[in-house]
């Protein structure tokens, strides 16, 4: 049942983008943000809220821009390298950030990401300041495509990646490493007594979540064609947390459902009114009030066996 549902959803997405070409960009962006929100959701399992994951999102997009400037011009290579860049930054930042819990973890993430933001905005000669850097269209396996074709390739690639990465993360969350995350949330001391290194588990989770955010950032960078410091601003991080909570952290699809919902809602709201912020905000309040488990919670509850 779930598989069919998921397959139908992916097919619908593919069809939607085919139908309205402008929607393809919105959907690509939604999937990209879904990756990043999935990263946030992984940490949320351990009860850790990161209000700084936009840093990894931006780091990987900037990574792609810098690598492209350095002459690397292949989509696959750029994607892999820029994800590695953000994973590396994640491993370094994580090594000291995962020692903290609760509000301290959230605030330190925020602080580190704002330092990164400030560097991007201030190092005018290197990063182009607030005007940002271009992310040129790369070749795909040596073939050079025009813009519309490349954007279609990028969209379908991100769709495929969404399924593949989703499955991998699903496996990860279902593994001992993944289950240890909820254990950290419920009783960390007991976990230590069982001989499980909490620090290592969280560092692995943090690095994975940074890599996921990085994957999203790289896709977004290619889709937008330009990376600006705003990618790393704290509101963008808050946006990712919002997507994760909105979609529901019960399962991998939650992050993508949340991202799609929010992006489509945004697109619909701006076409209607100048007060689109109000519109989006009110809908969010409604969702949070009436669906505490997130949107994905609706699906889950139906699946649960009745007592």
């Amino acid at each position: 049942m779930r598989i069919i549902l998921a397959a139908a959803a992916v097919l619908t997405l593919a069809g939607l983008a085919f139908a309205a070409p402008w929607l393809q960009f919105v959907l690509t962006l939604a999937i990209a943000k879904g990756f990043a929100a999935l990263g946030v959701a992984v940490l949320l399992r351990a009860g850790l809220i990161s209000i700084g994951h936009a840093m990894f999102f931006a780091a990987s997009a900037y990574g792609a821009a810098f690598l492209a400037r350095a002459g690397i011009n292949d989509l696959g290579l750029l994607l892999i390298l820029s994800v590695l860049v953000s994973a590396l930054i994640g491993a370094i930042a994580g090594s000291f950030l995962v020692r903290y819990r609760a509000i301290f973890f959230a605030m330190l993430n925020l602080a580190v990401s704002m330092v990164f933001y400030a560097l991007c905005a201030k190092l005018y000669g290197v990063t182009g300041g607030t005007d940002g850097m271009p992310v040129p269209i790369p070749a795909v396996f040596g073939m050079v495509f025009a813009e519309p074709a490349f954007k279609s390739i990028l969209f379908y690639l991100s769709l495929v990646l969404m399924v593949l990465v989703g499955l991998v993360v699903h496996r990860y969350l279902d593994s001992p490493l993944g289950h240890a995350l909820s254990a950290v949330h419920s009783n960390e001391i007991r976990l230590e007594y069982l001989g499980i290194p909490v620090w290592a588990i969280l560092l692995i989770a943090y690095t994975i979540s940074a890599a996921l955010a990085g994957l999203g950032g790289a896709v977004a960078g290619f889709a937008i064609g330009r990376v600006v410091p705003d990618f790393a601003f704290w509101t963008a991080s808050g946006h990712l947390v919002l997507i994760a909570v909105l979609g529901g952290i019960g399962g991998v699809p939650g992050a993508f459902i949340g991202a799609l919902f929010l992006e489509l809602l945004h697109s619909a709201a701006v076409t209607v009114t100048d007060a689109w912020n109000l519109f989006v905000g009110m809908t969010l309040i409604a969702v949070i009030m009436f669906m505490p488990q997130g949107i994905y919670g609706l699906f889950e509850r139906k699946e649960a066996p009745s007592p």
Partner: peptide
């Protein structure tokens, strides 16, 4: 059709594509 630039580059590009379509 007015498009609010305050929504940031991503939203502006999405709107641009929609209008161009």
């Amino acid at each position: 059709t007015y498009v609010d630039e305050a929504q940031g580059a991503q939203g502006v590009i999405a709107e641009y594509r929609r209008l161009a379509g």
